[in-house]
Nucleic acid binder design. Sequence first.
DNA 1: CGATCGCGGAGTGGATTGCTCCGCTCGTGC
DNA 2: GCACGAGCGGAGCAATCCACTCCGCGATCG
Lengths: 235, 235
Amino acid sequence: MSAPGNRGRRQAEAERNDRALLQAAREVLAADGAHASVASIAARAGVGIGSLYRRYRTKEELFQRLSALSLEHWNEAAERGLADDDPWRGLKGFITACVEFGQGSLSPVAGTIEVTEQMAASSARGDELLAALVARAHEAGVLRADVTAVDISLLIEQLGTSPLLDQLRKQGRDDLVGAAMEARARLVTIAVDGLRAVHTEPLPGGAPSGGLFTERWARAPEPPATGARGSGRAG
Amino acid sequence: MSAPGNRGRRQAEAERNDRALLQAAREVLAADGAHASVASIAARAGVGIGSLYRRYRTKEELFQRLSALSLEHWNEAAERGLADDDPWRGLKGFITACVEFGQGSLSPVAGTIEVTEQMAASSARGDELLAALVARAHEAGVLRADVTAVDISLLIEQLGTSPLLDQLRKQGRDDLVGAAMEARARLVTIAVDGLRAVHTEPLPGGAPSGGLFTERWARAPEPPATGARGSGRAG
DNA sequence: CGATCGCGGAGTGGATTGCTCCGCTCGTGC
DNA sequence: GCACGAGCGGAGCAATCCACTCCGCGATCG
């Protein structure tokens, strides 16, 4: 900031630290929920608390950044999926990417942080992209007809939240994390197979309305309309 | 204790309180993780903290009781499944029952409480029952061949942990809880459909070994053998 | 109508948390 | 080769939260 000419090794290390911080925050948040402490995040990232607080002025700011990045990742994955010629492969790739990225680990912070305009906009765009992905798959006849976009959102959130993975990481059993991720990949394949159009058994209950999951980011339970709000999607 | 003859209305109310306490503990535990406070549990159950502590001497004792009950429920559900003539319907009923009961909400306490002998025994029996359920379905040719018992355990844990449900309960939106449960029931149907034998796409990676998930209940990361230990199953 | 029992919740010491501040290390410019 | 300062890690602080104890009160039973 002060001296405008220094873009050396210092800065590169700072960026690496930032990435480590964000990844650590994702993992600790998934394991400990919204009560995750900044100390544990910094420790997991291998940086000092001071470094964390130079980059993010408050804990909430860090969580907001994390949420914004997750929403961006969602949108990028959806765009990649739409870019695929095969509607089914595109949808499946989208779901897999979101689950593996850990989309859904941010669910616990929903309702505890202020929603920025950027997040709201990103979220709205994500809804459109997912709707397009689902509509295309429906038209191609590869996705069972009674599955909605909300079902997909929920599926990603459910599979993207892995108690086993979280616990292993929390206990420091990093050697088993890879195996656990492989095991989860199996579940994703199973669940995605269940989405294919070949099934005949109808889904129970009526199709879930998007409205049910619309206000999850709102802070307080009482006010039904809080202005900017996220979608029903995970993290 | 002192007067041995009073088994009147008092006792009935006490039992109701106990049930409310256990259900509340399940919900709060699912929402807040292992850090769930006894105060919030008591509040959710609508009883005073004092009442909680007269029944359970410590927080850990309450969690142990909860774990034991979950394991029992798992076994009962598995036995009901085995009692069903149709191997497929039996397996599906078992999975559905476990998910809806909230099996998996206890995952966060794994590794934080002492494992009692009763829990260890119950857990071992649960493993046997599930293995029988899976073997029977395999023999009948209704379950895809590359699915293992560990896959089923993991599936139940994943689907039994619902961030959306937890958040709604935490925010007090009890009016939406029913809808969220219905939405999750749809996911269960989808995932279970993916388990059927008709699918041809192989599951990625090797079949997960049970050993990977065996030591989840052990308290510390270092000691590899802690004596009594649970299975890889949820809750 | 008095004795008794279970109930709810205020109170308490200790642990934890978000955040600040500061001494130190090490890359950088001369 | 040296002085400088940016960025680092983590000790420290006030506020909060936690598990658990203790006690007054109202309902129930003989």
